[in-house]
């Protein structure tokens, strides 16, 4: 793992640590303080967006494990989110399973289905795989739309509100539920890449034939990567089911897959921190645009009329701009900023 210059490791343990310098610990402390203050500083609307971000972070981290770390392009994110959401919703509304258990089962089911749809990855690469996962997205969408018994013929599932959640403090309580779950999920994902399994994922990404030659079991690495990634995505889907209290297929279309891919591209492929930045960026962008649009719309009515189209255009422009200017995303920009400060007044 590349670390900054000027840091010398004397033991392998020290090198494997997640944080090496005092500055890194200090920044972590700042982030934690910020996360603890956030719910009391924001109003309900923005707290709701913070909650959606927390859910999206889990999904983006899951997708980055697959796309950024293992190099298997997936357009099936929406489908896997749907599997997680539908499984947990059906289990807790109809089978009467307690919510934590339903979420765990949902994670396992999504991981299984992810591994199943990952099987073509054993023979396919790159662009062909991307198209195969597009097919898995469409097939899962067809199933959740057309199999009436999933939703008892209603087309949607209503998930009852968790018993201890009050109406007035809905967003606040959810924030305190989601924050630890997301924190643990991100930490877990970060730690996977300190293990041999995580390293084997990266070996498959960088050069799969060479990886096989040095003894990485490619089949195992690819299928596990699909399962692990889908597990995170399933968790994200399940959380969104309880948080939004309805499950409909409209929330899991191909656009959602694209949105999540955009998150990890903008954030930085192959970086857990990048997935977090990307999720924050991509979830905040439409909210901020709405805000700006409403302000500007008073003077220029065109903006109010065309707000959805403008949002789509800016979404696309954001993706293109990042790919053209900084293909390694926000994570790289952030580390460059840190370097600039650290080496100031020298350039490097």
């Amino acid at each position: 793992m590349a670390t900054a210059t000027g840091i010398h490791h004397r033991t392998y343990r020290a090198e494997l640590r997640l944080r090496h310098t005092k500055a890194e610990w200090f920044r972590l402390a700042l982030v934690i303080v910020l996360l603890l203050v956030v719910p009391y500083a924001l109003n309900t609307y923005w707290l709701g967006i913070a909650n959606s971000i927390l859910i999206a972070v889990v999904g983006a981290v899951g997708l980055n494990i697959l796309v950024g770390f293992t190099g298997q392009i997936s357009l099936g994110q929406g489908g896997f989110l749907a599997v997680g959401a539908y499984t947990s919703a059906i289990l807790s509304t109809r089978a009467g399973l307690p919510v934590p258990l339903a979420i765990i089962v949902a994670i396992l089911v999504t991981a299984f289905i992810g591994a199943l749809f990952g099987l073509p990855a054993l023979r396919l690469k790159g662009l062909y795989l991307a198209i195969a996962t597009l097919a898995s997205q469409e097939i899962i969408m067809f199933v959740v739309r057309r199999w009436g018994f999933l939703t008892e013929g209603k087309g949607y599932i209503e998930v009852p509100r968790l018993p201890f959640i009050e109406r007035e403090t809905f967003e606040l309580q959810w924030y305190w539920i989601l924050l630890p779950i997301t924190f643990v999920a991100v930490l877990m994902a970060r730690n996977v890449f300190r293990t041999s399994l995580g390293r084997s994922f990266m070996a498959v990404r960088d050069q799969d034939i060479a990886a096989e030659a040095i003894g990485v079991n490619i089949t195992r690495a690819k299928v596990t990567a699909f399962a692990l990634s889908s597990g995170f995505v399933g968790l994200s889907g399940a959380l969104s089911a309880y948080y939004t209290e309805t499950v409909t297929w409209e929330r899991f279309t191909l656009d959602v897959s694209v949105l999540y891919l955009a998150m990890i591209i903008v954030g930085g492929l192959g970086s857990i921190a990048g997935s977090v930045y990307g999720a924050i960026f991509m979830m905040l962008l439409p909210a901020l645009l709405t805000e700006v649009g409403q302000k500007a719309g008073d003077s220029i009515p065109f903006i109010t009329d065309q707000l959805p189209a403008i949002k789509n255009a800016i979404f696309g422009i954001a993706i293109i701009t990042f790919l053209l200017i900084e293909p390694r995303g926000l994570d790289r920009i952030w580390s460059r900023m840190k370097d600039y400060v650290r080496f100031w007044p020298f350039r490097y």
């Binding site: 796309v67 991307a130 591209i265 492929l269 293909p327």
Partner: peptide
């Protein structure tokens, strides 16, 4: 491959919005 795919996806979003 992923960069190239994503840039055309971004392009599709812009064209549709236009």
């Amino acid at each position: 491959a992923i960069s190239v795919i994503m840039v055309t996806i971004g392009l599709s979003s812009v064209l549709k919005a236009l």
